[in-house]
């Protein structure tokens, strides 16, 4: 064989292997839901658009998924962004204030809000790459101050938005599916192209896997990290737009509240290790949908929205434990001991 051929089969098999467990977990939740919560999988149509619990999951899961996509890149570089919730609030505040109070037309206000999110991400990235702060500490600063900034923007009020275009983002549907899903699809495609058609994906994974070796191989480590945080900020801002659209207002106290854990969890479930390195964008989307299904299931099982975080936290810990090599070794030892005990 003179001409080496690309091995698409190998690559596809690798992707399938990486996504196997997230998909199995998602299926498990859906099955449990179908059994215990009547109507969990029912889809109907009203006025030509699909409705039902799965569609709701898709709609609200898309918001988490968009944040998770940005978070995936940051985690892949070996970092973490705790400020996404605060950035969601800031972006929602900027959108609402620009549209409702300043009278800025929405085609200008929306990019402006995303830009603000990008700036917030760049700020985090600067703290990480220039000041060399640990990512947790660096993003903690904005986590503390972010909601204050958002309230400063809105003047502490809940600013309502009556712009129909903004309303359509979260509450409209196209081709039968919610617009948020199409937005997610667009963000995913854009990021996938950016990451896979350029070398960014490779360089991000390298930096996260071994940053000393990456630097010696000539990888522009700082720019790569900066890029990841900027993307994360932009994604959080898009989620802020969606949030603002859902409730037709910017409620900075509640917008994006506790979103950071959902996003981190979605990334971890999706198969990206918290230590950085290889990452899977599609895995994070599956992880986000899984989280949203779980939230929705708990809701349908009459678990109140306030209690719902507790079982979610259990899932987080379980998933992290399963990823932990120490835990695996521990379980392996126990299993072997039991085998030895039963001759």
């Amino acid at each position: 064989m003179a001409e080496p051929r690309p091995h698409p089969g190998v690559a596809l098999a690798a992707i399938a292997r990486d996504l196997l467990w997230p998909l199995v977990a998602l299926a498990a939740i859906l099955v449990v839901g179908a059994i215990f919560a009547p109507g969990f999988l029912t889809i109907g149509t009203i006025d030509g658009r699909l409705v039902g619990t799965p569609i709701d999951i898709l709609n609200h899961g898309s918001k988490v998924a968009i944040v998770a996509l940005g978070m995936t890149l940051v985690i892949a570089t070996g970092g973490v962004d705790l400020s996404v919730g605060a950035v969601v609030a800031i972006a929602a505040a900027v959108t609402a204030t620009l549209v409702s109070e300043q009278g800025v037309p929405w085609p200008l206000a929306v990019p402006a809000a995303v830009l603000v999110g990008t700036m917030a991400g760049l700020w985090n990235g600067m703290l990480v790459t220039v000041l060399r702060l640990q990512p947790i500490v660096a993003t903690l600063v904005l986590m503390v101050a972010g909601r204050g900034i958002a309230q400063l923007v809105t003047g502490g009020l809940i600013v309502t938005v009556r712009e129909p275009a903004i309303d359509l983002i979260g509450n409209g549907a196209s081709v039968g599916l919610p617009n948020t899903f199409w937005l997610l699809a667009a963000v995913f495609l854009g990021l996938a192209l950016l990451v896979r058609r350029t070398a960014l994906g490779l360089l991000i994974a390298c930096v996260g896997d071994n940053d000393s070796a990456s630097r010696l191989a000539g990888v522009p480590e700082r720019s790569v990290r900066l890029f990841a945080y900027a993307v994360c900020g932009s994604c959080a801002a898009i989620a802020g737009l969606i949030d603002c659209s859902y409730i037709r207002a910017a409620d900075v106290n509640n917008a994006g509240q506790l979103l950071e854990l959902d996003a981190i969890l979605a990334v971890v479930i999706g198969g990206t290790a918290l230590t950085g390195g290889r990452f899977s964008l599609i895995g994070s989307i599956i992880g986000a949908m899984l989280m949203q299904s779980l939230t929705r299931l708990l809701y349908m099982l009459d678990v109140s929205a306030e209690i719902a975080p507790a079982p979610k936290a259990m899932v987080v810990l379980a998933v992290c434990l399963l990823q932990s090599s120490v835990f695996r070794a521990f379980v392996g030892r126990v299993a072997r001991r039991q085998e030895a005990g039963t001759p």
Binding site: L202, A205, C206, D209, S212, S214, L216, A217
Partner: peptide
């Protein structure tokens, strides 16, 4: 300082 452990041989070579 050398290998990027979890990446493939191909990716390590072209890095």
């Amino acid at each position: 300082d050398g290998i990027i452990p979890s990446l493939s041989v191909r990716e390590n070579i072209i890095l």
